[in-house]
Design a protein around this nucleic acid. Structure first.
Lengths: 228, 228
DNA sequence: CGCTGCGTTGAGCTTCTTCAACGATCGTGG
DNA sequence: CCACGATCGTTGAAGAAGCTCAACGCAGCG
């Protein structure tokens, strides 16, 4: 599988013609990252953006004391740091590989050059950024309106829905990372998982979690009910 | 002042040529809203987006119990609901006029038509969306990493910096609305303002707030210090 | 004048975090 | 191959932050 095939799989570049792909392939650079390696840090100059070819990447912010809030977890086909390309500003957050990852890097100036000649590429970017904005909207809502059990319930239901409503879901990230993604800490997450088990809403064994009572999880996610 | 002049003031449309403006003026529709009037509700079909000509608009989410989280407060020249245009999805939040407002409305299909012929318009939209994404990044950081005093301090410093670092700032929205914007409730906001007064960090009289100790506010905003 | 919305204050309570300790797992080097 | 260390997950106890509920003053406005 060559670079063009990989690119065609990303929503960002879907539906472009072969000439477009050739041009993209012409400016792309490849980077290999090991688990735990920094891709860039908040404040670094925004020299371009990335698309995950393989692996897993987290985008996150750190507080003064070092507490982490994950903004995104990104897998194959997903772009990140596009914002830096268009604002011309520095990266607004940190990026780290969660596992061995292969990345495509698109330098800012060359990419903008492509964009200007290419309305459909621009439309794709607009759609992608819009979707991301919508995700952030949900995230802000969750962080400010819901309690942690509600956020966790929403996350589990989301995972399930992404898997044909599977009864059992597998966490693709460590529980510590999940805690950060949900805006809390590992201890709290652990306690809430225990309580959900006690209530028979779920049955969790390590990274595998079975959803036993969807209705109850729904109620938690909508804030309609509290976790006993 | 005609429509074209108004449009040219919005960052969204800055730097376009006169032909572009004429086309935009050709598809725009004008709407007048009274204070408290709904512009659209979450879940409504995303038929187009708006630019504020005059007045003030809030974009917000509601929890099950009716608690509100404001996502944005928008004034003249600022666009909103662009996301719906590109995702083709329903509006992801509610919009309400905070005061008597005059709005420009751009219907989805006509606007997309313009975009496709017009790379510089697309580039402007990309830059605008990216900036908004960056703001959301900050907001998520604030909501999850900072305590309420820190968020308030950051907000006051932001207001001041938008006014040539004025020593005294005036809140353009009601304190209840500010509470929602900061992800808290009026009672908590009120108590924190009182504490900041006691510490002589600020001096507040109604909507006018003087910043007496910028260093202390900075420390709060960065999470470096706690409010006594 | 009375109503309504906004802001403030107090008391009690819930949720979450902090701090500390401990068990399990896993990869690595001896 | 085993032992060790590191990371991760879990549990307990105590404390802090913010929320709920309730009451009240105040201003603007019909």
């Amino acid at each position: 599988m060559n670079i063009t095939d990989y690119l065609a799989e990303s929503p960002l570049f879907k539906g472009l013609n072969s000439e477009n792909y050739k041009e993209l392939a012409g400016i792309v650079m490849e980077r290999d990252m090991k688990r735990g390696q920094f891709i860039f840090n908040e404040g670094d100059e925004g020299v371009g953006f990335y698309v995950v070819a393989s692996g897993l990447v987290k985008i996150y912010k750190l507080s003064f004391e070092g507490k982490e809030q994950i903004l995104h977890i990104l897998g194959p086909g997903e772009p990140f740091a596009e914002v830096a390309v268009f604002t011309g500003m520095n990266y607004p957050a940190n990026a780290m590989a969660l596992e061995q990852s292969h990345l495509f890097f698109f330098p800012r100036t060359s990419f903008i050059h492509l964009l200007k000649k290419n309305p459909s590429l621009a439309m794709n970017m607009l759609a992608t950024l819009s979707l991301r904005l919508k995700q952030f909207t949900h995230m802000i809502e969750a962080l400010s309106l819901k309690e942690v059990p509600g956020r966790l319930a929403a996350y589990l239901l989301l995972l399930s829905s992404q898997n044909n409503d599977a009864a059992t879901v597998k966490l693709s990230i460590a529980k510590t990372q999940l805690a950060s993604l949900l805006g809390t800490i590992p201890e709290t997450l652990s306690r809430i998982l225990t309580r959900m088990n006690n209530q028979q809403y779920i049955e969790s064994k390590g990274a595998d979690i079975s959803l036993l009572n969807r209705q109850a999880l729904d109620d938690l996610a909508s804030g309609e009910k509290r976790l006993e």
